[in-house]
Amino acid sequence: MTGSEFLMQFMSGLTTAMIYFLIAAGLTLILGVLKIMNFAQGGIYMLGAYMSYTFIKLFGGTNYGFWLTLAIAPILVTAFFCVVEVFLIRRFYEKPAIYILLMTYGVLLVTYDLARMSWGWIIKTAPMPPMFQRPFEIFGLFFPLYNVFLIFMGFFIFFFIWFIINRTSWGKIMRAAADDREMTAALGINVPWVFTAVFGLGAWIAAIGGALVAPMAGLSADMGVEAGIIAFIVVVIAGLGSLPGALLASFICGEVQAFGILVLPELAIAFMYLVMVIVLIVRPWGLFGKPVIIK
């Protein structure tokens, strides 16, 4: 294998990693702050993709149409899921975990059929914006420009959430509410709305992940199921709720996938699971998680 082929494969792995991260980051945030598992996350991602498909088509597949879509479509999906949070999920934060698990599963099923009803059965794909229809050259190698954009967006989303959580007063409130609800409420902060905001932010990230994937992949209602599993595996490897962990886990999964298929192509389907098995046996609480062992 030559150096340039190595670099190509590495960049491919990075693209995969960023898609994994975009899918899993929202779930990580929700897990970390709200301490709930959101099965509907895959459904949000799928709706984000379908919604972008509609808007990109609406704007005629132009460049500015693509930017407008990125701004509008995820927000619409987020708004819908904020309503879901307020009416269906909010009241169960203090109840046993099983209720929210099952509730979000129910929401996932409804989302799935809603997409089939609204967009029909036939698979879809959004046109690639013209500005990305050329290669990007580095060290004499060519990559699709969109993949480079995707990698950039992955890092951008990471720093964006990291900044919100660690460097803004909003983030402080979120962290406080996650640590101690009652104390935060006693300080006069409307905790339920903080939670809705966190849920909304998590949904927005998943929806934007879907929106970014829409021009480069085929869309079907089932894409959410696959995405849900990817998000799940990434957060397990990362340690529940750790954002840097999710980035690292995505990176490991992506690169293991990219180089693994060169050596053992017939195991392509299993690499993510293999990484998960190793992590579960060595560090059951994940790479960046805190041990939560109870005697």
């Binding site: 294998m1 494969q9 995969t16 994937v213 696959e226 990817i230 392509a268 389907i269």
Partner: peptide
Amino acid sequence: VSEQWPKLGTTDFTPYITALLS
């Protein structure tokens, strides 16, 4: 010269594409 086995429903084929190309 090469065989690849992506999962059904893969969202990202780039590693497979570069592997096939090389």
